[in-house]
Design a protein around this nucleic acid. Structure first.
Length: 382
DNA sequence: TCCTCGTTTCCTGGTT
DNA sequence: AAACCAGGAAACGAGG
């Protein structure tokens, strides 16, 4: 096994200060990111826009990514719009926005803390007014408002239709909480919209990209191991049942390296929210998480320590709607950021990491100083 | 449609 | 022995 010398092994401080050791070690050329010729050389990965100043955002709005999830209940799926409370309305608006390809960050959800009875009376213009947020592109807000309004009308007309046909429409019994499919069949109108239903004849999205948020209804989870010949007939009999010496075979079965095919999560299309380093920075700037689950080890050196690594991983998983997230996986994602010096490891110290010279800006406690940009954008501004 | 990027999900092997 | 760390491999989804 080739053990690549890590650039930060020599002098962490010099690297952090942008000193002479920022030159890469010889073997660094072999790293994939350099092979790909991204051309990213200068500038801070997170400061690609020197003139960009994130607008002042209400703390509640800034924390949308976490706070909005407090509204991510699904009771609204089990009620008619008339019965929604303000939390249901907010949950539905956020869900609708996300499933149509918008970021929940773009939803000023506090403006939608109204009962369903009030929501259903809203005119198109009022939805637009409530959707306007000073930190969001007006065009985005307009499209978002259009989508939310149209989806609301779809839902209302669907409810009306179902109410007429009482043999179809019924409230969900409590035990159906354990059967999401059944619940969906009965009342999850929006998910049905996303997966199967056609929009009403009056629905003409002015942006075709809006339609890209439709969920893929195919279910190929059983194909997780299809790429592995050893996982098919060798392990299972031809009839699908396990063979007699299954335990031995199970023990001898060796998964192929890499992510199994079909292991992707079938979730609604959503824009990228935050990167791993930005997520960590946000936790460190938030007293709800610092110092309980993560804390600064040396803030001057941008060095931090995981107090409860599993909790951090769970939060990340929650953010990504991935219940299977572990610290092992999360730390792997972190290690990919070593390549670009966005993160650097701290040798010999366990659970201690450090933001690199191209890491997020943590010099101010203000939470409005970061704009994540991809590398290629950074090139354009360097 | 293809490619890149940032993951996610595995793995092996090493260290603490 | 368990937890953590480093990084390869392959797949995935989003976006350009």
């Amino acid at each position: 096994m080739i053990d690549y010398a890590r650039p930060y092994d020599q002098n962490m401080c010099e690297i952090y200060m942008g000193g002479p050791t920022t030159s890469a070690p010889a073997r660094l050329d072999d790293f994939q990111v350099f092979k790909k010729g991204t051309g990213y050389i200068y500038g801070n990965y997170y400061n690609a826009y020197p003139d960009y100043h994130e607008p002042e955002i209400d703390t509640a709005v800034y924390h949308n990514l976490v706070n909005s999830r407090e509204y991510r209940r699904e009771e609204w799926k089990l009620k008619v719009v008339d019965e929604w409370n303000d939390d249901d309305t907010v949950s539905w608006v956020i869900d609708t926005a996300q499933c149509m390809g918008f970021s929940e960050y773009d939803v000023p959800f506090h403006n939608f803390k109204v009962d369903g009875s009030e929501l259903k009376l809203m005119r198109r213009e009022e939805v637009l007014q409530r959707m306007v947020a000073h930190h969001v592109d007006p065009m985005v807000s307009r499209r978002l408002a259009e989508v939310v309004y149209e989806k609301l009308q779809c839902r209302l007309s669907e409810e009306m239709y179902r109410e007429r046909d009482s043999s179809v429409f019924r409230y969900v019994e409590s035990d159906q909480y354990q059967h999401p499919d059944t619940v969906q069949t009965v009342l999850d109108l929006d998910s049905l919209d996303h997966k199967h239903r056609l929009y009403g004849s009056d629905y003409r999205p002015n942006d075709s990209s809006l339609m890209q948020g439709l969920c893929d209804s195919s279910d190929d989870t059983e194909e997780v191991f299809r790429s592995s010949p050893r996982a098919s007939s060798e392990y299972y009999g031809s009839d699908g049942s396990k063979s007699g010496d299954e335990d031995d075979k199970r023990k001898s079965f060796k998964r192929p390296p890499g992510r199994p095919k079909g292991s992707g999560r079938k979730i609604c299309k959503r824009p990228r929210s935050v990167s791993v380093p930005e997520f960590l920075r946000n936790l460190l700037l938030d007293t709800r998480y610092n110092p309980t689950i993560i804390k600064w080890e040396d803030r001057e050196l941008k060095k931090f320590r995981f107090v409860k690594p599993d909790e951090v991983a769970k939060l990340w998983g929650k953010l990504k709607q991935n219940d299977n997230m572990t610290f092992e996986k999360f730390s792997r994602a972190m290690r990919y950021h070593y390549r670009q010096s966005v993160l650097v490891s701290v040798p010999t110290a366990r659970l201690v990491y450090q933001f690199g010279p191209k890491g997020p800006d943590i010099t101010t406690s203000s939470s409005s100083s970061v704009k994540v940009k991809s590398e290629d954008v950074a090139v354009n501004y360097s």
